[in-house]
């Protein structure tokens, strides 16, 4: 028997911002941080917001998370407008103190499952352990966060975000405070997890090479106020292409777009 014909509309993007404008209140009145930025992220995409300081990339992420109210414009998750924070968009912050110090690593990961997903205690525990195993933290299950190194804390935060299975992961320069070796290791591990789990990600960074490596698409922003500068597709550039001519070429091009100079790149 033939299935009844459904009128299939294209699925809405997982996350979408339309004409997003953000102001900051200061002593001398409101200051525009972001002006009329459009963006949309489809399932499995990794959108990187990239720009120099003052381009409002972190503000955009805060607005997407629902922490910062939009002056104008709308934010939609799977076509539904959102106004406040919610566990459909889990944030991984740059700060190491994002793990709750009074909970063990395992309980930190289980916590959002308990409060936001209403999962039973035993199931939350199992899922937390599985998520921590994914990021290589099985040995630290019962440790309190203060005993962990910076890299391990960020791993635990990523595990916590993954375990919650949000519609979209939001990462705000999660590796910026790490040393170079640890940062590279975590970038590689994040890419491996993305390959495996196909999560949808919005990633904020100011490092061009990190942006090209992590993202499937780049969203370049210009500063004061933050405006869309350009978009670039980087899905074809991954770990294997690091150091290749195409990778270097794109890095140089992005640097020129952002800083207007061809000399070197960061």
């Amino acid at each position: 028997m033939a299935a009844p014909a459904l009128r299939l509309e294209p699925a809405p993007p997982v996350l979408e911002a339309r004409r997003l404008t953000l102001d900051y209140a200061t002593d001398r009145g409101p200051v525009r941080a972001v002006e009329a930025v459009d963006l949309s992220v489809d399932a499995g995409e990794r959108l990187v917001l990239l720009g120099p300081s003052g381009c409002g990339k972190s503000s955009i992420l805060k607005a997407l998370a629902g922490f910062l109210p939009a002056t104008s414009g709308t934010i939609l998750v799977r076509g539904r407008p959102v106004s406040g924070p919610g566990p459909d968009r889990i944030v991984v912050f740059q700060e190491f103190d994002q793990l709750l110090p009074w909970k063990t690593v395992r309980d930190n990961v289980a916590f959002p499952l308990r409060v936001a997903r209403k999962v039973s205690r035993a199931e939350a525990r199992d899922r937390a352990e599985a998520a921590l195993a994914r990021v290589g933290l099985t040995r630290a299950l019962d440790a309190f966060p203060h005993a962990l190194s910076g890299g391990m804390k960020q791993r635990a935060a990523i595990a916590r975000a993954l375990a919650t299975e949000p519609d979209v992961l939001l990462m705000d320069e999660p590796f910026a405070a790490l040393d170079a070796l640890t940062r590279r290791q975590l970038q590689e591990d994040l890419l491996a997890l993305a390959e495996e789990l196909r999560f949808t990600l919005v990633f904020v960074t100011h490092a061009i090479d990190e942006a090209v490596l992590i993202g499937t698409r780049l969203h370049l922003l210009s500063p004061h106020p933050g405006r869309t500068l350009a978009m670039r597709d980087t899905a074809h550039l991954g770990l294997a292409e690091v150091g290749s001519a195409a990778f270097e070429e794109l890095t140089r091009e992005v640097h020129t777009l952002l800083f207007g100079s061809t000399r070197g790149h960061v």
Binding site: P85, P87, I90, F93
Partner: peptide, 8 residues
């Protein structure tokens, strides 16, 4: 922010 993120 973490707490608010979980809808608390």
């Amino acid at each position: 922010l973490v707490g608010r993120n979980y809808g608390l």
